[in-house]
Simulated assay, not measured.
Amino acid sequence: MKNIYRFFVQPQIGSQTKSIIGYELLLKEYTVNGWRIPESFSAIDPEIIADLLIKTTKALSTKSPRLSININRSQLMTTSISNAIVQSQKLLYPTKLIVELTEDDNSKRYSRAEIFSRLKIFWDNNIQISLDDVGSGINQFDDIQQLLPFASELKFALQNFHKRLIDPEMQTKVHFWRAMSNEYNLRLVLEGIENQDDDQLSDKMGIIFKQGYYFGRPRLLKLPNDNYTRSA
């Protein structure tokens, strides 16, 4: 069976207006059991991801003020993928494309100099950088501190932990990253909002940008001539 991949889109919400401010693109693979998250993103042919990204952004052009795409460090260092991201931004304009650097532990370790050299390609093309999964895996504060001055956004994912936002330990983590976002003048997006309690508590914590099942589950973005179901 040929490997088939598509992007799903999940809305991001601005709490002040409770309106959609953008979408995150989430890559999934079509299997006999429906759409699933790939076991290894690094194992996917970069040319497949690059081609799919360009087709997807063509379909989404002018439909959202912001679109976010996840890449791990190995994908960041892959020329075909970085070129496709730059081309996608040109296709999307005036929609803003944001690159989310994830904490994928399966990625090869790269020096900060190597990472900076690749990120500069995006900066030179007016593509913003988001540091995803902060506080998780290889995206701890010490690991990303030198990247903070060059980022536009931090994303803290509640779903990476086994505790909910009501837990004091989780609130301490969120407060820390909110403080870092204020210090470096970055957006902070809180992921994993699953119910009204999470939403209301995060409001009290001063969180403006949010994402999670409470606002909408990822949905399949069909490309022309697709006949796949929307089942995730």
Rank of each mutant, 00 (worst) to 15 (best):
A43N: 13
T57D: 02
M180H: 00
L92K: 07
K163S: 11
D197K: 15
L60F: 01
F8C: 04
L97H: 08
I69C: 09
M170Q: 15
D132N: 08
I166T: 08
S111N: 04
L26A: 03
I207N: 03
S80N: 08
V9W: 00
F41A: 11
Q145E: 12
L27F: 00
L190Y: 01
L221F: 06
S136W: 09
I4S: 04
T57S: 05
G192M: 06
D51P: 01
V134P: 08
M180Q: 13
I115K: 03
I121P: 01
D198V: 08
S82T: 15
S88I: 05
I121G: 03
Q16L: 13
A232I: 13
H162Y: 04
K55F: 00
D203E: 15
K222C: 12
F161H: 12
K163Q: 14
D226E: 07
N125R: 08
R109V: 13
R164K: 14
T31Q: 00
P224V: 09
I21P: 02
N72I: 02
K28E: 01
G137F: 01
R164W: 00
D132K: 05
E169I: 13
T56P: 04
R66F: 11
M205I: 06
Q145F: 12
Q145I: 15
Y214C: 04
K63G: 03
L53E: 01
N195P: 11
N126F: 10
A157D: 11
D124N: 15
P218I: 08
P218N: 08
E47W: 00
L60C: 09
W35T: 06
F141W: 04
S130A: 15
I129M: 11
P11H: 06
Q200V: 13
M170E: 09
P94L: 04
I69M: 01
E103W: 07
N83Q: 15
E194M: 09
T78R: 06
F7Y: 15
L97P: 10
I81Y: 00
L52V: 08
I71Y: 01
I208D: 06
K18M: 12
K2D: 14
L148D: 02
L148W: 01
Y30V: 04
G22T: 07
D199W: 12
K222H: 12
S202L: 05
A43K: 13
L165P: 09
L60I: 11
M180C: 06
Q145D: 07
D167Y: 05
N83C: 03
F116C: 01
M205D: 07
P218R: 09
S111K: 10
S181G: 11
I193C: 02
A179K: 13
N72R: 03
L26N: 10
I49R: 04
I81P: 03
S82Y: 00
D226K: 07
G34K: 09
D167M: 07
R36D: 08
L154T: 11
Q211I: 04
R118N: 12
N106S: 13
D203N: 13
S231K: 13
